[in-house]
Amino acid sequence: MNLFRILGDLSHLVSIFILLQKMRSTRSCAGISLRTQILYLMVYCTRYLDIFWTFNASLYNSSMKLVFILSTAYTIYLMRTVYKTALDPQIDTFATYYLVGGAGLLAVLFPYKYTVYEVLWSFSIWLESVAILPQLFMLQRTGEAETITTHYLFALGAYRALYIPNWLYRWFLEGHFDPIATVAGIIQTLLYSDFFYIYYTKVLKGKKFELP
């Protein structure tokens, strides 16, 4: 465990609280992609299967896993019930099947081992790397976002970005290297790069998030 990883995990945790806070404070889920949330739930459910047999291995990991699964399920529940009037299927239209299909294909081609758990783990890593695309696509269609939504996206993107120095650290200091997670994590961070740039040049300088 190193500082980058802890900061990454905390950033992930914070992003979920910001998302829930966004819905509570604006009483709306406008601007949030239901498709991306559903993809994340698939990611957590397929990656954290091991929670049933490693519960005692690390209380930290197990509790985080539970929080990620439950909070994402709760977010989806809120979006489909309390805040459903703000859902806009006309804007949230990204072809998610391609993402699930592509991640499935990569998982079957390159798992560390051919076991159900390992293939699902690999699937979850690839799916996570692209799960944000429906959300970014939606953002591009609307051309603007509420400031709190951009804080959510920043915290979510920062999580995987912070994992990159963590992987470097572990590679050099612990001899641990996870090629699947690292390649997928770099792709995931690259997908955010435009967003990070606009967040840095606009939101952090007190301006509204608007696409040029």
């Binding site: 990883r5 995990d9 992930h12 990656r47 091991d50 690390s58 990991n61 985080m64 896993k65 990620f68 560390y112 081992k113 783990w121 994992y163 963590n166 641990h176 996870d178 997670a181």
Partner: peptide
């Protein structure tokens, strides 16, 4: 023999 990959991250 290659050591098995541990999944100890989130």
């Amino acid at each position: 023999k290659k050591e098995e990959q541990k999944h100890d991250e989130l």
